[in-house]
Amino acid sequence: MTLKITELEKNDKICKMSIDGEMDINSYKKVKDKLNKIIDEESINIELDFQNLSYIDSTGIGVLIGILKKLNKNEKSLVIKNARENIIRLFNITGLDKIFILQ
């Protein structure tokens, strides 16, 4: 399954995006480049809708950790919404559920 990134809403405070498909070793760079471009251009909060994200692996999680660190440096937030059970399970196993805001 291919990965699709859609910008849902953007203003001067927040950029909301959905990430659909599979975020794995073959696709994580697409997300990394897109998110880095946005937060390098402006200091902004990020909200990611994972409703249609069916799979993530450690390369995808690594991207999210990198983005979270960058945002926190600028006192901005990363919120992850609607993640499926299999994805929440990985966050729980790695302890990242305590670091990320999952809604």
Partner: peptide, 20 residues
């Protein structure tokens, strides 16, 4: 093993496998 309180963007793979 990864330090889960101070996660890095890499090094999680084997830890995840062990847990699954």
């Amino acid at each position: 093993k990864p330090d889960l309180k101070h996660p890095k963007g890499h090094g999680l793979g084997l830890f995840i496998i062990e847990n699954l």
